[in-house]
Amino acid sequence: MKKPLIALAYALGLPIVVIVIWWAGTLNATSPFVPKPVQLVQTFFATWFGERFVTDVLPSLSNFAVGTLIAIVAGCLIGTVIGLSRDLRAFTEPIFEFFRAVPPPVLIPVFGLLIGVDDRMKVAVIIAGAIWPVLLNTVEGVRAADAVQTDTCRSYGISGIARVRFQILPSAAPYILAGVRQALPIGIILMVISEMFYSSAGLGFSIIQFQRRFAIPEMWSGILLLGLIGFAVSMIFTLVERRLLRWYFGLKDLENAS
């Protein structure tokens, strides 16, 4: 019972301290650009828990989920194929480094012209940015497969899809999930940025509209919502990661215990 309470204290300790400092700092403040905590909470529920939740929040989350999922699956598949071939890695590395260096937001006008100014463009922008951490980490994970395990598979005649499934992917899983962890916040960032261009709905569009109308509490409430979404996504991913890598964290715990 003590460990969950300690973990909860660590998780909530700093946010509570920040809120207390924020409350104390705005206690006698009159600036309209920094809302007080109580005012922000009231504005948050009034703004987002109504019609705007359906028209703005759900479409944004849908684009984020679709784009990030496609980026993860494509990154894993392409990274596995490339990681298995030394020649293919050498052939693709220059072009990958080029496209990875291109900031995805600058592709928004290009995608707008080629795809159209709809949800497909927003999903494409998310894929263009979120795929790289997964793809490159998958390549490194496949390359780092244990040589002894590889020799054992060769000795027992395990090859092809069976080797990829039972040796390569489990061995590369920590690398892949590390890439997924990096891809998730990138997907959220690009979700917002893509909605600031050629859009009439979504979280990014709403935050920009609030800023232009000087609806400062509403603007801050949108930023708060994005932070909560990022926190929720991180917590869900941590639970999934712990379940998928039980064997890996078990080995880590044994190493720490010894």
Rank of each mutant, 00 (worst) to 15 (best):
G160N: 11
G204D: 07
M191V: 10
R242I: 07
F91Y: 13
T238H: 00
A147L: 06
I208K: 08
M121P: 14
A215K: 15
D146K: 13
L251V: 12
Y248Q: 14
A232S: 05
P217V: 07
V110D: 09
A215P: 03
Q182E: 08
P32A: 06
I223D: 10
Q42W: 13
P104V: 06
E51Q: 10
A71I: 08
V54S: 15
W22V: 08
S62D: 12
R52F: 14
A178H: 02
A201L: 08
G141S: 13
T80I: 13
A215N: 10
Y198D: 10
S200E: 07
L114K: 08
M219R: 11
K252A: 10
I176L: 03
F96D: 07
R212H: 05
V18I: 13
S206E: 08
S200W: 07
E241D: 04
G50V: 05
V20L: 12
R154M: 09
I176Y: 00
P103D: 00
T30L: 12
G13S: 09
K252I: 07
V34L: 11
G50Q: 06
G116T: 09
E97C: 07
G222Q: 05
R181G: 03
L254A: 13
T138Q: 04
Y156C: 05
L61Y: 09
S199Q: 05
K3D: 12
G187S: 15
G204F: 15
F231P: 02
K36M: 04
L12T: 01
C76Q: 03
V240Y: 02
T26N: 08
L228D: 01
Q209S: 14
W247Y: 11
G250T: 01
W48F: 11
G13F: 01
T43H: 00
R89N: 15
A178E: 14
G67W: 04
I72M: 03
V117C: 12
R163F: 04
K122H: 08
K2Q: 11
A147Q: 03
W132Y: 12
G160C: 09
L239H: 01
S155V: 10
L69W: 11
L8W: 02
I127V: 09
A24N: 14
G25H: 12
I207A: 06
G250C: 02
G204V: 08
P35Y: 11
V34H: 08
D56V: 02
V110M: 12
F214C: 01
S159F: 10
V54K: 13
S31A: 12
P185H: 08
L135T: 15
E218A: 11
I176P: 02
F45T: 06
V139N: 06
I189D: 03
V110R: 07
L254E: 11
V20Y: 08
A11L: 04
P174S: 02
L5T: 09
P104C: 05
R212S: 09
I21W: 08
N256S: 11
A65N: 06
V110H: 07
L177S: 04
I70Y: 12
I161N: 15
D253S: 09
S60Y: 01
P133H: 05
F197M: 10
A215S: 13
T238G: 01
R154H: 12
A9Q: 04
G157P: 10
F45Q: 06
S85T: 08
P35I: 07
A130K: 10
V66D: 15
R154A: 13
I19G: 01
W247K: 09
G75R: 04
V17L: 15
V134M: 05
